[in-house]
Design a protein around this nucleic acid. Structure first.
Length: 464
RNA sequence: GUCCCCAUCGUCUAGCCCGGUCAGGACACCACCCUUUCACGGUGAGAACCGGGGUUCGAAUCCCCGUGGGGACGCCA
Protein backbone atom coordinates (compact mmCIF):
# COMPACT_ATOMS: atom_id res chain seq x y z
CA UNK A 1 0.00 0.00 0.00
CA UNK A 2 1.16 3.44 -0.94
CA UNK A 3 1.96 6.12 1.55
CA UNK A 4 0.66 8.92 -0.60
CA UNK A 5 -2.17 10.86 0.97
CA UNK A 6 -3.35 14.01 -0.75
CA UNK A 7 -6.26 16.27 -0.07
CA UNK A 8 -8.47 18.76 -1.78
CA UNK A 9 -9.64 21.30 0.76
CA UNK A 10 -12.20 23.73 -0.61
CA UNK A 11 -14.21 26.15 1.44
CA UNK A 12 -17.90 26.37 0.65
CA UNK A 13 -17.96 30.14 0.39
CA UNK A 14 -18.76 30.50 -3.28
CA UNK A 15 -19.32 28.77 -6.58
CA UNK A 16 -17.04 25.95 -7.58
CA UNK A 17 -14.74 27.31 -10.23
CA UNK A 18 -12.28 26.09 -12.76
CA UNK A 19 -9.17 26.80 -10.69
CA UNK A 20 -10.49 24.74 -7.80
CA UNK A 21 -11.44 21.96 -10.17
CA UNK A 22 -7.94 21.89 -11.57
CA UNK A 23 -6.40 21.77 -8.10
CA UNK A 24 -8.75 18.94 -7.21
CA UNK A 25 -7.90 17.16 -10.44
CA UNK A 26 -4.15 17.29 -9.96
CA UNK A 27 -4.54 15.93 -6.45
CA UNK A 28 -6.88 13.24 -7.67
CA UNK A 29 -4.56 12.32 -10.54
CA UNK A 30 -1.60 12.08 -8.21
CA UNK A 31 -3.54 9.90 -5.79
CA UNK A 32 -4.71 7.59 -8.54
CA UNK A 33 -1.30 7.55 -10.21
CA UNK A 34 0.43 6.52 -7.01
CA UNK A 35 -2.33 4.30 -5.70
CA UNK A 36 -2.64 6.70 -2.79
CA UNK A 37 -5.58 8.22 -0.97
CA UNK A 38 -7.58 11.23 -2.11
CA UNK A 39 -9.15 13.12 0.77
CA UNK A 40 -11.89 15.70 0.57
CA UNK A 41 -11.75 18.11 3.47
CA UNK A 42 -14.18 20.95 3.93
CA UNK A 43 -12.61 24.14 5.22
CA UNK A 44 -15.65 25.78 6.71
CA UNK A 45 -14.21 27.81 9.56
CA UNK A 46 -15.66 31.06 8.24
CA UNK A 47 -19.19 30.73 9.55
CA UNK A 48 -20.37 33.99 8.02
CA UNK A 49 -19.56 33.05 4.47
CA UNK A 50 -20.28 29.33 4.43
CA UNK A 51 -23.39 28.20 2.65
CA UNK A 52 -24.87 24.73 2.54
CA UNK A 53 -25.72 25.06 -1.15
CA UNK A 54 -22.09 25.71 -1.99
CA UNK A 55 -21.16 22.56 -0.13
CA UNK A 56 -23.56 20.56 -2.24
CA UNK A 57 -22.12 22.19 -5.31
CA UNK A 58 -18.66 20.91 -4.37
CA UNK A 59 -19.93 17.34 -4.03
CA UNK A 60 -21.93 17.58 -7.25
CA UNK A 61 -19.18 19.12 -9.30
CA UNK A 62 -16.54 16.65 -8.18
CA UNK A 63 -18.90 13.76 -8.80
CA UNK A 64 -19.93 15.07 -12.20
CA UNK A 65 -16.28 15.42 -13.19
CA UNK A 66 -15.63 11.88 -12.06
CA UNK A 67 -13.30 12.68 -9.18
CA UNK A 68 -14.18 10.22 -6.45
CA UNK A 69 -12.71 10.72 -3.00
CA UNK A 70 -11.60 7.97 -0.65
CA UNK A 71 -12.07 9.87 2.58
CA UNK A 72 -14.32 12.76 3.45
CA UNK A 73 -18.01 13.58 3.64
CA UNK A 74 -20.20 11.26 1.63
CA UNK A 75 -21.29 12.67 -1.73
CA UNK A 76 -24.92 12.84 -0.58
CA UNK A 77 -23.89 14.93 2.41
CA UNK A 78 -24.94 12.30 4.94
CA UNK A 79 -22.14 10.95 7.08
CA UNK A 80 -18.58 10.49 5.98
CA UNK A 81 -16.01 7.82 5.34
CA UNK A 82 -12.38 7.49 6.41
CA UNK A 83 -10.73 7.07 9.77
CA UNK A 84 -9.13 10.50 10.11
CA UNK A 85 -12.30 12.54 10.45
CA UNK A 86 -14.27 14.53 11.03
CA UNK A 87 -13.57 15.97 7.59
CA UNK A 88 -15.40 19.20 8.12
CA UNK A 89 -13.35 21.72 10.03
CA UNK A 90 -16.44 23.04 11.74
CA UNK A 91 -16.58 19.70 13.58
CA UNK A 92 -12.95 19.56 14.64
CA UNK A 93 -12.94 22.15 17.39
CA UNK A 94 -11.58 19.83 20.07
CA UNK A 95 -8.66 18.82 17.88
CA UNK A 96 -7.77 22.46 17.33
CA UNK A 97 -7.95 23.15 21.03
CA UNK A 98 -5.59 20.27 21.72
CA UNK A 99 -3.11 21.54 19.17
CA UNK A 100 -3.41 25.08 20.48
CA UNK A 101 -2.50 23.67 23.87
CA UNK A 102 0.68 22.19 22.43
CA UNK A 103 1.69 25.56 21.08
CA UNK A 104 0.92 27.22 24.39
CA UNK A 105 3.01 24.70 26.26
CA UNK A 106 5.85 25.33 23.87
CA UNK A 107 5.50 29.05 24.49
CA UNK A 108 4.67 29.70 20.86
CA UNK A 109 1.23 31.23 21.31
CA UNK A 110 0.28 34.57 22.76
CA UNK A 111 -2.77 36.77 22.98
CA UNK A 112 -3.14 40.19 21.42
CA UNK A 113 -6.27 42.19 20.62
CA UNK A 114 -8.44 39.29 21.71
CA UNK A 115 -6.91 36.92 19.19
CA UNK A 116 -4.29 34.24 19.62
CA UNK A 117 -1.11 34.63 17.60
CA UNK A 118 1.65 32.29 16.60
CA UNK A 119 5.02 33.49 17.75
CA UNK A 120 7.84 33.25 15.27
CA UNK A 121 11.40 32.72 16.45
CA UNK A 122 14.19 35.00 15.35
CA UNK A 123 15.34 38.58 15.18
CA UNK A 124 12.52 41.10 15.31
CA UNK A 125 12.53 44.40 13.46
CA UNK A 126 10.01 47.02 12.49
CA UNK A 127 9.44 48.18 8.96
CA UNK A 128 6.93 50.44 7.26
CA UNK A 129 4.58 48.47 5.02
CA UNK A 130 3.55 50.50 1.98
CA UNK A 131 0.69 48.18 1.25
CA UNK A 132 -0.93 48.38 4.66
CA UNK A 133 0.30 51.90 5.22
CA UNK A 134 1.56 51.18 8.68
CA UNK A 135 4.52 49.96 10.61
CA UNK A 136 4.69 46.20 11.06
CA UNK A 137 6.95 43.88 12.98
CA UNK A 138 8.78 41.24 11.01
CA UNK A 139 10.85 38.34 12.19
CA UNK A 140 14.02 37.30 10.45
CA UNK A 141 15.58 33.92 10.98
CA UNK A 142 17.38 31.17 9.16
CA UNK A 143 15.53 30.77 5.86
CA UNK A 144 12.78 28.25 5.45
CA UNK A 145 13.75 26.14 2.48
CA UNK A 146 10.84 24.53 0.68
CA UNK A 147 11.82 21.81 -1.73
CA UNK A 148 8.82 22.23 -3.99
CA UNK A 149 8.20 19.30 -6.29
CA UNK A 150 7.21 21.60 -9.12
CA UNK A 151 9.29 24.70 -8.52
CA UNK A 152 12.40 23.42 -6.88
CA UNK A 153 13.90 25.16 -3.89
CA UNK A 154 12.09 28.21 -2.64
CA UNK A 155 13.56 30.22 0.21
CA UNK A 156 12.13 32.78 2.58
CA UNK A 157 13.65 34.26 5.67
CA UNK A 158 11.19 36.90 6.81
CA UNK A 159 7.66 36.50 8.09
CA UNK A 160 5.29 38.05 10.59
CA UNK A 161 3.50 36.55 13.54
CA UNK A 162 0.03 35.57 12.45
CA UNK A 163 -3.37 34.87 13.97
CA UNK A 164 -4.17 31.24 14.72
CA UNK A 165 -7.38 31.82 16.67
CA UNK A 166 -9.57 34.76 15.78
CA UNK A 167 -11.14 36.92 18.44
CA UNK A 168 -14.48 35.27 17.65
CA UNK A 169 -12.98 32.06 19.01
CA UNK A 170 -12.64 30.30 15.65
CA UNK A 171 -9.30 28.98 14.46
CA UNK A 172 -7.70 30.62 11.43
CA UNK A 173 -6.78 29.19 8.06
CA UNK A 174 -3.03 28.64 8.50
CA UNK A 175 -3.54 26.87 11.78
CA UNK A 176 -6.37 24.54 10.80
CA UNK A 177 -4.75 23.80 7.51
CA UNK A 178 -1.58 22.60 9.15
CA UNK A 179 -3.26 20.81 12.05
CA UNK A 180 -5.54 18.95 9.67
CA UNK A 181 -2.71 18.00 7.36
CA UNK A 182 -0.81 16.65 10.34
CA UNK A 183 -3.70 14.73 11.84
CA UNK A 184 -4.91 13.43 8.50
CA UNK A 185 -1.35 12.36 7.73
CA UNK A 186 -1.28 14.20 4.43
CA UNK A 187 1.93 13.35 2.61
CA UNK A 188 1.80 15.77 -0.33
CA UNK A 189 0.25 19.19 -0.44
CA UNK A 190 -0.68 20.03 -4.00
CA UNK A 191 -2.28 23.46 -4.27
CA UNK A 192 -2.27 26.68 -6.25
CA UNK A 193 0.72 28.97 -6.42
CA UNK A 194 -1.28 31.61 -4.60
CA UNK A 195 -0.43 29.62 -1.46
CA UNK A 196 3.29 29.58 -2.10
CA UNK A 197 3.86 32.68 0.00
CA UNK A 198 1.89 31.11 2.87
CA UNK A 199 4.05 28.05 2.85
CA UNK A 200 6.87 29.39 4.97
CA UNK A 201 4.34 30.20 7.70
CA UNK A 202 3.00 26.68 7.46
CA UNK A 203 6.45 25.21 7.72
CA UNK A 204 7.09 27.27 10.85
CA UNK A 205 3.92 25.86 12.30
CA UNK A 206 5.00 22.31 11.51
CA UNK A 207 8.28 23.06 13.24
CA UNK A 208 6.34 24.45 16.18
CA UNK A 209 4.51 21.16 16.48
CA UNK A 210 7.74 19.24 16.03
CA UNK A 211 6.46 17.59 12.89
CA UNK A 212 8.29 17.15 9.59
CA UNK A 213 6.38 19.05 6.90
CA UNK A 214 4.89 17.11 4.00
CA UNK A 215 6.04 17.46 0.41
CA UNK A 216 4.83 20.64 -1.27
CA UNK A 217 3.90 21.09 -4.92
CA UNK A 218 2.60 24.46 -6.04
CA UNK A 219 0.56 24.49 -9.21
CA UNK A 220 0.64 27.31 -11.75
CA UNK A 221 -2.47 29.47 -11.79
CA UNK A 222 -5.14 29.77 -14.43
CA UNK A 223 -5.20 33.33 -15.72
CA UNK A 224 -7.83 35.25 -17.63
CA UNK A 225 -7.67 34.95 -21.41
CA UNK A 226 -6.45 38.10 -23.18
CA UNK A 227 -10.08 39.07 -24.00
CA UNK A 228 -11.07 38.82 -20.35
CA UNK A 229 -8.32 41.12 -19.14
CA UNK A 230 -5.45 40.74 -16.72
CA UNK A 231 -4.79 38.64 -13.70
CA UNK A 232 -5.91 35.32 -12.39
CA UNK A 233 -9.24 33.90 -13.31
CA UNK A 234 -12.00 34.64 -10.83
CA UNK A 235 -15.51 33.36 -10.36
CA UNK A 236 -16.86 36.38 -12.11
CA UNK A 237 -15.10 35.64 -15.37
CA UNK A 238 -16.95 34.06 -18.24
CA UNK A 239 -16.46 30.34 -18.30
CA UNK A 240 -15.09 30.21 -14.76
CA UNK A 241 -17.82 28.17 -13.14
CA UNK A 242 -17.96 24.39 -13.35
CA UNK A 243 -21.70 24.56 -12.93
CA UNK A 244 -21.94 26.44 -16.20
CA UNK A 245 -20.36 23.59 -18.16
CA UNK A 246 -22.65 21.12 -16.52
CA UNK A 247 -25.64 23.22 -17.45
CA UNK A 248 -24.39 23.58 -20.98
CA UNK A 249 -24.08 19.82 -21.28
CA UNK A 250 -20.36 19.71 -21.79
CA UNK A 251 -18.91 16.24 -21.54
CA UNK A 252 -17.10 16.05 -18.19
CA UNK A 253 -14.28 14.05 -19.75
CA UNK A 254 -13.66 16.89 -22.20
CA UNK A 255 -13.36 19.37 -19.37
CA UNK A 256 -11.14 17.02 -17.40
CA UNK A 257 -8.83 16.52 -20.35
CA UNK A 258 -8.64 20.23 -21.07
CA UNK A 259 -7.83 20.95 -17.43
CA UNK A 260 -5.29 18.16 -17.18
CA UNK A 261 -3.43 19.47 -20.19
CA UNK A 262 -3.50 23.03 -18.91
CA UNK A 263 -0.24 22.97 -17.04
CA UNK A 264 0.69 19.38 -17.61
CA UNK A 265 1.59 17.24 -20.61
CA UNK A 266 3.10 13.83 -21.12
CA UNK A 267 6.21 15.32 -22.72
CA UNK A 268 5.20 14.70 -26.30
CA UNK A 269 2.74 16.05 -28.87
CA UNK A 270 -0.40 14.40 -27.56
CA UNK A 271 -3.12 16.73 -26.40
CA UNK A 272 -5.84 14.22 -25.69
CA UNK A 273 -5.88 10.72 -24.27
CA UNK A 274 -8.13 8.49 -22.22
CA UNK A 275 -8.27 9.36 -18.53
CA UNK A 276 -6.70 6.03 -17.59
CA UNK A 277 -3.69 6.98 -19.70
CA UNK A 278 -3.43 10.39 -18.04
CA UNK A 279 -3.55 8.70 -14.63
CA UNK A 280 -0.77 6.39 -15.73
CA UNK A 281 1.52 9.14 -17.04
CA UNK A 282 0.74 11.96 -14.63
CA UNK A 283 3.45 13.02 -12.22
CA UNK A 284 4.39 16.14 -10.31
CA UNK A 285 7.72 16.87 -12.04
CA UNK A 286 5.81 16.97 -15.34
CA UNK A 287 3.74 19.93 -14.22
CA UNK A 288 4.66 23.30 -15.77
CA UNK A 289 5.90 26.17 -13.70
CA UNK A 290 4.30 29.01 -15.59
CA UNK A 291 0.73 30.23 -15.37
CA UNK A 292 -1.65 29.47 -18.22
CA UNK A 293 -4.36 31.59 -19.75
CA UNK A 294 -7.77 30.07 -20.07
CA UNK A 295 -8.95 29.41 -23.63
CA UNK A 296 -12.65 28.69 -23.88
CA UNK A 297 -12.40 28.04 -27.62
CA UNK A 298 -9.95 25.25 -27.14
CA UNK A 299 -12.17 23.75 -24.46
CA UNK A 300 -15.14 23.93 -26.83
CA UNK A 301 -13.10 22.20 -29.50
CA UNK A 302 -12.11 19.51 -27.04
CA UNK A 303 -15.73 19.02 -26.17
CA UNK A 304 -16.65 18.65 -29.83
CA UNK A 305 -14.04 16.00 -30.48
CA UNK A 306 -15.33 14.01 -27.52
CA UNK A 307 -18.92 14.43 -28.64
CA UNK A 308 -18.07 13.18 -32.10
CA UNK A 309 -16.41 10.12 -30.63
CA UNK A 310 -19.30 9.13 -28.37
CA UNK A 311 -21.05 5.84 -29.08
CA UNK A 312 -24.59 6.46 -30.37
CA UNK A 313 -26.11 5.12 -27.16
CA UNK A 314 -24.26 7.54 -24.94
CA UNK A 315 -25.12 10.40 -27.22
CA UNK A 316 -28.76 9.38 -27.03
CA UNK A 317 -28.63 9.31 -23.26
CA UNK A 318 -27.12 12.78 -23.15
CA UNK A 319 -29.59 14.08 -25.72
CA UNK A 320 -32.58 12.69 -23.86
CA UNK A 321 -31.36 14.30 -20.68
CA UNK A 322 -30.97 17.57 -22.52
CA UNK A 323 -34.45 17.54 -24.04
CA UNK A 324 -36.06 16.47 -20.82
CA UNK A 325 -34.86 19.67 -19.24
CA UNK A 326 -35.61 21.95 -22.18
CA UNK A 327 -38.83 23.89 -22.05
CA UNK A 328 -41.10 22.08 -24.48
CA UNK A 329 -38.50 19.37 -24.88
CA UNK A 330 -40.93 16.57 -24.24
CA UNK A 331 -42.28 16.98 -27.78
CA UNK A 332 -38.94 15.76 -29.04
CA UNK A 333 -39.08 12.68 -26.85
CA UNK A 334 -42.62 11.66 -27.77
CA UNK A 335 -41.61 9.30 -30.53
CA UNK A 336 -38.55 7.20 -29.66
CA UNK A 337 -37.76 5.89 -33.14
CA UNK A 338 -38.13 9.33 -34.67
CA UNK A 339 -35.97 10.84 -31.95
CA UNK A 340 -33.20 8.32 -32.50
CA UNK A 341 -33.22 8.95 -36.20
CA UNK A 342 -32.80 12.68 -35.74
CA UNK A 343 -30.09 12.32 -33.11
CA UNK A 344 -28.19 10.10 -35.48
CA UNK A 345 -28.25 12.93 -38.02
CA UNK A 346 -27.33 15.58 -35.47
CA UNK A 347 -24.43 13.96 -33.63
CA UNK A 348 -21.79 14.33 -36.34
CA UNK A 349 -22.83 17.91 -37.04
CA UNK A 350 -23.13 19.78 -33.80
CA UNK A 351 -20.31 21.17 -31.66
CA UNK A 352 -22.09 20.72 -28.37
CA UNK A 353 -25.21 19.18 -26.89
CA UNK A 354 -26.51 22.65 -26.15
CA UNK A 355 -26.93 23.24 -29.89
CA UNK A 356 -29.32 20.34 -30.19
CA UNK A 357 -32.46 22.37 -29.55
CA UNK A 358 -32.02 24.92 -32.29
CA UNK A 359 -30.36 22.46 -34.60
CA UNK A 360 -33.34 20.11 -34.62
CA UNK A 361 -36.26 22.43 -33.74
CA UNK A 362 -37.98 22.15 -37.12
CA UNK A 363 -38.25 18.41 -36.76
CA UNK A 364 -40.70 18.74 -33.89
CA UNK A 365 -42.38 22.01 -34.64
CA UNK A 366 -44.42 22.93 -37.69
CA UNK A 367 -44.17 26.58 -36.72
CA UNK A 368 -40.42 26.70 -37.15
CA UNK A 369 -39.03 30.15 -37.90
CA UNK A 370 -37.67 31.12 -41.31
CA UNK A 371 -34.27 32.77 -41.17
CA UNK A 372 -34.78 36.08 -42.97
CA UNK A 373 -31.16 36.49 -44.00
CA UNK A 374 -30.99 33.02 -45.46
CA UNK A 375 -34.28 33.50 -47.21
CA UNK A 376 -33.16 36.70 -48.84
CA UNK A 377 -30.03 35.02 -50.10
CA UNK A 378 -31.67 31.87 -51.37
CA UNK A 379 -34.60 33.59 -53.03
CA UNK A 380 -32.33 35.97 -54.91
CA UNK A 381 -30.78 33.24 -57.02
CA UNK A 382 -32.41 31.60 -60.06
CA UNK A 383 -36.12 30.89 -59.88
CA UNK A 384 -36.67 29.24 -56.52
CA UNK A 385 -40.47 29.34 -56.75
CA UNK A 386 -40.34 27.35 -59.96
CA UNK A 387 -38.03 24.78 -58.34
CA UNK A 388 -40.42 24.33 -55.45
CA UNK A 389 -43.38 23.90 -57.75
CA UNK A 390 -41.48 21.29 -59.76
CA UNK A 391 -40.61 19.55 -56.53
CA UNK A 392 -44.20 19.69 -55.40
CA UNK A 393 -45.33 18.10 -58.64
CA UNK A 394 -42.74 15.31 -58.38
CA UNK A 395 -43.17 14.57 -54.70
CA UNK A 396 -46.11 12.15 -55.01
CA UNK A 397 -44.05 9.70 -57.05
CA UNK A 398 -40.84 9.99 -55.01
CA UNK A 399 -39.60 7.18 -52.78
CA UNK A 400 -39.08 8.36 -49.19
CA UNK A 401 -38.10 4.97 -47.80
CA UNK A 402 -34.34 5.51 -47.68
CA UNK A 403 -31.67 8.13 -48.37
CA UNK A 404 -30.44 6.55 -51.60
CA UNK A 405 -33.87 6.45 -53.21
CA UNK A 406 -34.67 9.86 -51.89
CA UNK A 407 -31.55 11.27 -53.44
CA UNK A 408 -32.16 9.44 -56.70
CA UNK A 409 -35.62 10.95 -56.86
CA UNK A 410 -34.40 14.49 -56.50
CA UNK A 411 -31.58 13.92 -58.96
CA UNK A 412 -34.02 12.54 -61.50
CA UNK A 413 -36.14 15.64 -61.15
CA UNK A 414 -33.08 17.84 -61.61
CA UNK A 415 -32.06 15.98 -64.74
CA UNK A 416 -35.51 16.31 -66.17
CA UNK A 417 -35.20 20.06 -65.98
CA UNK A 418 -31.55 20.05 -66.98
CA UNK A 419 -30.59 21.38 -63.57
CA UNK A 420 -28.35 20.27 -60.72
CA UNK A 421 -29.14 18.83 -57.31
CA UNK A 422 -28.00 22.05 -55.78
CA UNK A 423 -30.68 24.04 -57.57
CA UNK A 424 -33.28 22.27 -55.49
CA UNK A 425 -31.31 21.67 -52.32
CA UNK A 426 -31.03 25.20 -50.95
CA UNK A 427 -34.59 26.29 -51.54
CA UNK A 428 -36.08 22.98 -50.42
CA UNK A 429 -34.05 23.23 -47.23
CA UNK A 430 -35.26 26.74 -46.64
CA UNK A 431 -38.87 25.70 -47.18
CA UNK A 432 -38.84 22.67 -44.90
CA UNK A 433 -36.38 23.81 -42.22
CA UNK A 434 -36.18 27.59 -42.46
CA UNK A 435 -32.41 27.63 -42.42
CA UNK A 436 -29.32 26.81 -44.41
CA UNK A 437 -27.62 24.60 -41.88
CA UNK A 438 -28.50 21.03 -41.19
CA UNK A 439 -28.24 17.42 -42.25
CA UNK A 440 -28.40 16.49 -45.92
CA UNK A 441 -31.67 17.50 -47.56
CA UNK A 442 -32.37 13.92 -48.54
CA UNK A 443 -32.20 12.87 -44.89
CA UNK A 444 -34.42 15.74 -43.83
CA UNK A 445 -36.99 14.83 -46.48
CA UNK A 446 -36.92 11.16 -45.64
CA UNK A 447 -37.25 11.71 -41.90
CA UNK A 448 -39.95 14.35 -42.23
CA UNK A 449 -41.92 12.18 -44.61
CA UNK A 450 -43.83 12.94 -47.79
CA UNK A 451 -46.84 14.52 -46.16
CA UNK A 452 -45.04 17.02 -44.03
CA UNK A 453 -42.57 17.93 -46.76
CA UNK A 454 -45.45 18.58 -49.14
CA UNK A 455 -47.34 20.61 -46.59
CA UNK A 456 -44.32 22.68 -45.65
CA UNK A 457 -43.44 23.52 -49.23
CA UNK A 458 -47.04 24.51 -49.96
CA UNK A 459 -47.14 26.66 -46.90
CA UNK A 460 -43.84 28.28 -47.77
CA UNK A 461 -45.04 29.05 -51.29
CA UNK A 462 -48.30 30.45 -50.00
CA UNK A 463 -46.53 32.70 -47.54
CA UNK A 464 -44.51 34.17 -50.42
C1' G B 1 6.34 49.42 -2.10
C1' U B 2 8.26 44.55 0.19
C1' C B 3 8.71 39.34 -0.45
C1' C B 4 8.01 35.06 -3.65
C1' C B 5 7.19 32.63 -8.47
C1' C B 6 7.42 32.68 -13.75
C1' A B 7 9.09 33.95 -19.09
C1' U B 8 9.07 29.69 -26.77
C1' C B 9 3.76 31.66 -32.13
C1' G B 10 -2.51 35.72 -30.28
C1' U B 11 -3.49 31.13 -26.78
C1' C B 12 -2.05 26.00 -24.76
C1' U B 13 2.58 23.82 -25.35
C1' A B 14 7.16 20.22 -27.19
C1' G B 15 12.31 21.16 -27.10
C1' C B 16 15.69 23.32 -21.73
C1' C B 17 17.63 19.20 -16.82
C1' C B 18 22.22 16.20 -20.40
C1' G B 19 24.18 23.33 -25.13
C1' G B 20 24.79 21.64 -31.96
C1' U B 21 17.36 19.65 -35.66
C1' C B 22 14.56 24.29 -41.26
C1' A B 23 12.36 25.67 -33.09
C1' G B 24 7.65 20.68 -33.66
C1' G B 25 2.29 20.02 -32.44
C1' A B 26 -2.71 21.87 -31.04
C1' C B 27 -6.57 25.93 -30.63
C1' A B 28 -7.80 30.43 -33.11
C1' C B 29 -7.33 33.16 -37.79
C1' C B 30 -6.71 33.07 -43.39
C1' A B 31 -6.60 30.38 -48.22
C1' C B 32 -7.56 26.08 -50.94
C1' C B 33 -9.59 20.95 -51.34
C1' C B 34 -13.72 17.63 -50.12
C1' U B 35 -19.05 18.67 -50.60
C1' U B 36 -25.94 18.76 -51.48
C1' U B 37 -26.33 23.43 -47.26
C1' C B 38 -23.94 23.62 -42.54
C1' A B 39 -20.38 21.19 -40.02
C1' C B 40 -16.48 17.34 -39.76
C1' G B 41 -12.12 16.18 -42.32
C1' G B 42 -7.66 17.16 -45.53
C1' U B 43 -3.71 20.47 -47.46
C1' G B 44 -1.24 24.98 -47.08
C1' A B 45 0.04 30.07 -45.25
C1' G B 46 1.10 33.67 -41.62
C1' A B 47 2.72 33.52 -36.50
C1' A B 48 7.43 32.66 -31.14
C1' C B 49 12.74 31.56 -28.36
C1' C B 50 11.29 39.37 -23.88
C1' G B 51 16.04 42.58 -23.89
C1' G B 52 21.20 43.06 -22.63
C1' G B 53 25.56 41.04 -20.98
C1' G B 54 28.51 36.75 -19.99
C1' U B 55 30.36 31.25 -20.42
C1' U B 56 31.32 28.48 -25.08
C1' C B 57 33.88 26.80 -31.40
C1' G B 58 28.52 26.97 -30.81
C1' A B 59 23.04 29.29 -26.34
C1' A B 60 15.80 28.74 -26.83
C1' U B 61 18.83 25.48 -23.71
C1' C B 62 23.88 27.28 -18.56
C1' C B 63 24.98 32.10 -15.38
C1' C B 64 24.03 37.41 -14.19
C1' C B 65 21.34 41.96 -14.74
C1' G B 66 17.26 44.43 -16.64
C1' U B 67 12.22 44.31 -18.30
C1' G B 68 7.55 42.14 -18.40
C1' G B 69 3.67 38.98 -16.29
C1' G B 70 1.62 36.61 -11.97
C1' G B 71 0.97 35.81 -6.76
C1' A B 72 1.17 37.06 -1.52
C1' C B 73 1.27 40.97 1.90
C1' G B 74 -6.61 40.05 6.37
C1' C B 75 -8.75 38.30 13.18
C1' C B 76 -10.73 35.30 4.16
C1' A B 77 -9.56 30.60 2.65
Amino acid sequence: MSQVRVRFAPSPTGFFHIGSARTALFNWLYARHTGGTFILRIEDTDKDRNREEYLRLIYNSLTWLGMDWDEGPNPDGNGECGSFGPYRQSQRADIYQAYLQKLREAGRAYEKDGAIWFKLLGERFKVFDDHRKKEVEKVRSAPVIIDDKIRGKVERMEDEDFVIFRSDGNPGFHFVNVVDDITMQVSHIIRGEDHLSNTSKHVRLYEGFGVTPPVFAHLPLILKSPEMGQGKMSKRDKGALIEEYQQRYFLPEALITYLAFLGWNPGDDREKMPLAEIVKLFDLPGVNQSNAKFDGKKLAHMNMTYLLAQPADRFLTLARDYFRRQPGGTAALANEAYFREIMRLAQPKIKGIEELGTYTAYFWDENFPIDAMVKEKVMAKGDPQARLNELLAALPTMDFSNDANMEAGIKLLAEKHSLGFGDYQAVARLAVSGTNAGPSITSIFRVLGKERVTARIKRFLAAG
